[in-house]
Design a protein around this nucleic acid. Structure first.
Lengths: 134, 134
DNA sequence: AAACGCTACATGCGCACGCATCTAATGTGC
DNA sequence: GCACATTAGATGCGTGCGCATGTAGCGTTT
């Protein structure tokens, strides 16, 4: 019914449903990633996300804000996250000489290794979680 | 290439892409909801989610665990969230006499009003965020 | 070059969350 | 009825996050 008039209202209905579905999947997957990545590789989902972003982009160095945009995190969150990863030896911070305010972040070999090790787990979890639906 | 052999590997590729997309949408929408619902109605996304769940289900009373499942939150998170909402007069907790461990949670009229007021904002935000893509 | 604003990152702070645990109440076996 | 496991919800605790702010370096204007 109601095919006359604004069809947009139908969309409005569906957007909420879409959102609910998105929320459910996100919660399930995030929670599962937290568990599996944490237990098996000592990484949080955000940690992996940042490492994955760096590997995926293939650059040598990244600015903090670049990572923040890529990983859907605030600048401050990335600042601390990078500090944590650096403490764990997975990334390294280095000053850039032309702009001494800035910081270049690079993955270390150990970081690449950890990412490579965690990546199959990541895919497996997503496969199992995002395929139990319609 | 590689159409022979396991086709499942193609899926594995896409799952990660799907997940990235889901993450991006989730982050954008969640962040926008946080801002709009917070500023305009004094509600966090989780607050709204819980109220929305209660209104949507149409029951009189809810157990805490029921809400936790419906809102993708831990039991402890819901316990505190309900306490906050109760302080704000949006829900009420009442003992159930047959099982004195349990707690029944009900929305108040004020809670329904706030939900009704926030609901258009909620839909509007989702409309604008979840429609800026392919 | 001194003063001003701007930018990049770090940090203080408060908050919501999950995990583990606590408390109280309900069963269950004897 | 009395121990014991179980369940519902509250709470201690640690953590990661965003917002606001701090700090240091850059750029511009004069």
């Amino acid at each position: 019914m109601c095919t006359h008039g604004k069809i947009a209202s139908v969309d409005e209905q569906n957007v909420v449903g879409t959102w609910r579905d998105l929320l459910a999947k996100h919660a399930a997957a995030w929670c599962a990633l937290e568990r599996e990545l944490g237990d098996q590789h000592g990484l949080g989902p955000s940690d992996f996300e940042v490492l994955d972003f760096m590997v995926d982009q293939g650059q040598e160095r990244y600015r903090v804000q670049e990572i923040a945009d890529g990983a859907h995190l605030s600048q401050s969150a990335v600042s601390r996250l990078i500090a944590r990863l650096e403490r764990g030896g997975l990334v390294a911070r280095s000053m850039c000489d032309n702009d001494r305010r800035g910081v270049f972040v690079c993955i270390t070999d150990e970081g690449r290794d950890r990412h490579a090790a965690a990546s199959p787990t990541h895919r497996a979890v997503l496969m199992s979680v995002l395929h139990g639906d319609a």
